[in-house]
């Protein structure tokens, strides 16, 4: 398939996941601010901005400002609204490859954004975030059901898994930075939509070890760092095999991206929990940088340089 199309698909996956993840985080954050009378708003907001990679200006940061920056800022592709618009923009360039239902879903979402603002004013933020989650889930469902699971699909899944691993690692690092309290684990698990399944898994015992283990290492919960990395890794492997059927390489793996992600995954998989917890910040920043490196390696290998070559008229002497 065309590199340009592959790149678009990869980024559709990433942006949709980013929009959904950010919407979840903001929803829980806003609600947490309200529900906990003892929380220090300023610090909580600042730490959220930092972890999401938005430079906090020196001025006062309030919940409203956080929602503005991470939720509604159209100019930034890391905000919910910006990511949805960017996903739609990528889909526009790959309209003939994705199913028309997927395109329609993305386009309708994009067209619905102005109405969503109104929704915030009338019905509150929760309604808006709920709507975003719904649209993203719809997109995921359509991707699953209306697209053949070929290379293009693999790129989309790769983007989604990579973004997921990155997002959960970021969230975990808010916690690591905060020093870790039970309350913040609760918020964290809720942000990942993991609260109920966590409770079932550990039979209601909420403590540091279990929560960290769940979000970092759980094999079955799709938003854990480990599960997301594994999913991305298998996408990469499939991409290589799909190119040359039946010729898996005899030694090691074929691409740089696979090497990086494999190392990151094994680092989590084959180290004891105590060891990981003792150096949680380092572990997480390693995961985050691995995600960036994989991004670069994938771009380098599959998307090639597509920068336009500028021909300049020049007089020969």
């Amino acid at each position: 398939m065309l590199s340009r199309i592959a790149e678009s698909l990869y980024w559709i996956g990433r942006y949709i996941e980013r929009a959904e993840g950010t919407a979840r985080i903001l929803d829980v954050h806003v609600h947490g601010m309200l529900a906990d009378p003892w929380i220090d708003q300023e610090i909580a907001c600042r730490s959220l901005l930092t972890v999401m990679g938005v430079a906090a200006a020196d001025q006062h940061v309030s919940t409203v400002r956080v929602v503005g920056l991470l939720g509604l800022d159209q100019s930034s592709p890391s905000s919910v609204v910006g990511a949805l618009a960017a996903a739609r923009e990528n889909a526009r360039g790959a309209r003939e490859t994705i199913s028309s239902e997927m395109w329609e879903c993305l386009n309708a979402t994009w067209l619905g954004l102005p109405a969503a603002r109104l929704r915030i004013e009338q019905q509150g933020m929760h309604a808006f975030f709920g709507w975003v989650r719904e649209r993203c889930s719809l997109m995921a469902g359509l991707t699953e059901a209306t697209m053949s699971h070929d290379d293009g699909w693999l790129f989309l899944m790769l983007g989604r898994s990579l973004e997921r691993a990155d997002m959960t690692a970021r969230l975990l690092s808010t916690h690591a930075d905060a020093g870790g309290s039970i309350q913040s684990w609760l918020t964290l698990l809720r942000s990942c939509g993991a609260w109920e399944t966590f409770l079932r898994t550990y039979r209601g015992a909420l403590d540091d070890r279990h929560a960290a283990e769940f979000l970092l290492l759980d094999r079955l919960f799709p938003r854990s760092v480990f599960a997301a990395l594994s999913a991305a890794e298998s996408c990469l492997a499939d991409l290589e095999h799909a190119g040359t059927p039946g010729q898996a390489s005899r030694a090691g793996v074929a691409t740089e991206a696979q090497r990086i992600i494999g190392r990151a995954r094994t680092d989590l998989e084959f180290r004891g929990l105590d060891d990981l917890l003792a150096s949680l910040s380092t572990v997480l920043s390693n995961v985050e940088s691995a995600c960036s490196q994989v991004n670069a390696a994938v771009s380098g290998r599959y998307f090639r340089a597509t920068t336009a070559i500028a021909w300049a008229p020049r007089a020969f002497v």
């Binding site: 990679g53 020093g179 336009a308």
Partner: peptide, 26 residues
């Protein structure tokens, strides 16, 4: 044991990976 200590230093924000932007010229 409260962790919401004021004045602790926050790490530098790491920007999310940027997507491909169509160059203005194109």
């Amino acid at each position: 044991p409260d962790d919401r200590v004021a004045g602790r230093t926050l790490p530098q924000p790491r920007q999310p990976d940027p997507g491909p932007g169509a160059a203005a010229g194109a």
